[in-house]
Design a protein around this nucleic acid. Structure first.
Length: 183
DNA sequence: AGGGAGATTTTCT
DNA sequence: GAAAATCTCCCTA
């Protein structure tokens, strides 16, 4: 039993729960880089937009494994995007981390990304670039590797809104993207 | 400020 | 051969 057990729930539920959690990556010098998750998207197996929809492939194998691992994929020939695998083993579900609020290692993020602070981690590929998440982190077990997930700070209650997912055409009517409601 | 091209891997047609 | 869970740059107004 541990605090990440909720990840075995369905991806849609977990995507909503993950808002407010804090995602960090331990850098080579031992310091943490990351911040609070403010935007996620859910994907599961009967979802035409999901990589797992057409069954297991070498790339998507991790999605079908146990919850609590990182699924990192290469996107549009150039970017990395990071997911947290959810659901029971064999179920091909994951939650895409779309955006975080930078808290630790902000100076490093600025160096890695040539962008203003507002655009440091406001998209899935940007977040991975700022945190230096790549193929090397694929299948990493959360909290037993350099990828860390920590509970929301006590008293921080973030309201979320469900909206259509970004950048997909199949099953685009599903409200499986969760963002922190403004104010 | 808004739109389009390009980068380039995995997978499917 | 083409589309995809994207982003940046460069172009025109």
């Amino acid at each position: 039993m541990n605090e990440l057990d909720f990840l075995t729930g369905g991806s849609v539920k977990v995507a909503r729960q993950l808002i407010g959690w804090r995602l960090f990556v331990v850098d080579s010098d031992g310091t943490k880089v990351g911040g609070t998750i403010i935007e996620t998207e859910a994907y599961n197996q009967d979802d035409a937009a999901s990589h797992s929809y057409r069954g297991k492939t070498p790339r998507t194998e991790v999605m079908f494994g146990p919850a609590g691992r990182a699924y990192v994929y290469f996107s549009y020939g150039l970017h990395w995007c990071m997911n947290i695998v959810t659901g029971p083993p064999g179920r091909g579900e994951a939650v895409l981390i779309r955006a975080i609020v930078p808290e630790l290692g902000i100076e490093k993020m600025r160096q890695r990304r040539r962008a203003t602070d507002l655009q440091l981690t406001n998209g899935p590929a940007k977040t991975c670039q700022a945190l230096r998440v790549t193929n090397a982190d694929n299948a990493a077990v959360i909290n037993k590797s350099r990828i860390l997930l920590e509970p929301p700070l006590p008293g921080s209650k973030l309201k979320t809104t469900a909206t259509p997912r970004i950048g997909i055409k199949k099953d685009a009517d599903r409200l499986w993207r969760f963002v922190v409601r403004e104010q």
